[in-house]
Simulated assay, not measured.
Amino acid sequence: MNQINVLMDQKCNGCKTHTELVEKYGDSYTKIDTHCNRQCNVGKQIQELGKQLTN
């Protein structure tokens, strides 16, 4: 959990791409999540760490 929080604090907060997607799509989190989870290297790392929590 700590690794996920550190990544999000250091890399996700203030991310220009995320901000641009929010401006473009508003509350359509599907579009934003698709980018963050499938295209962003940090998002992919967070996904892998999350999988470890469920094991």
Rank of each mutant, 00 (worst) to 15 (best):
L7S: 06
N37K: 15
R38H: 11
G14Y: 01
Q39Y: 14
I32A: 00
I46A: 03
K11G: 06
V42H: 02
Q45D: 15
K51I: 04
N41W: 09
L7Q: 05
R38Y: 12
T17V: 15
M8K: 13
Y29S: 13
K44F: 03
Q47I: 12
C36E: 07
N37E: 13
Q39V: 13
C12A: 09
D27R: 13
M8F: 01
G43S: 04
G14S: 04
T17P: 03
N41C: 13
S28P: 00
K11Q: 09
R38S: 12
I32F: 00
R38T: 15
Q47H: 12
N2D: 13
N13I: 15
C40Q: 07
Q39T: 11
T17R: 06
Y25S: 05
Q45L: 11
L53I: 08
K11Y: 00
K51W: 00
T17L: 05
N13G: 10
G14E: 03
R38W: 09
C12Y: 00
K31I: 13
D9N: 13
C15S: 04
M1G: 03
M8E: 07
N41G: 15
T34L: 10
Q3T: 08
I46Q: 01
Q52T: 14
C40K: 06
R38K: 14
N41V: 15
C40Y: 03
E23G: 08
Y29L: 14
K31T: 11
V42A: 01
I46F: 07
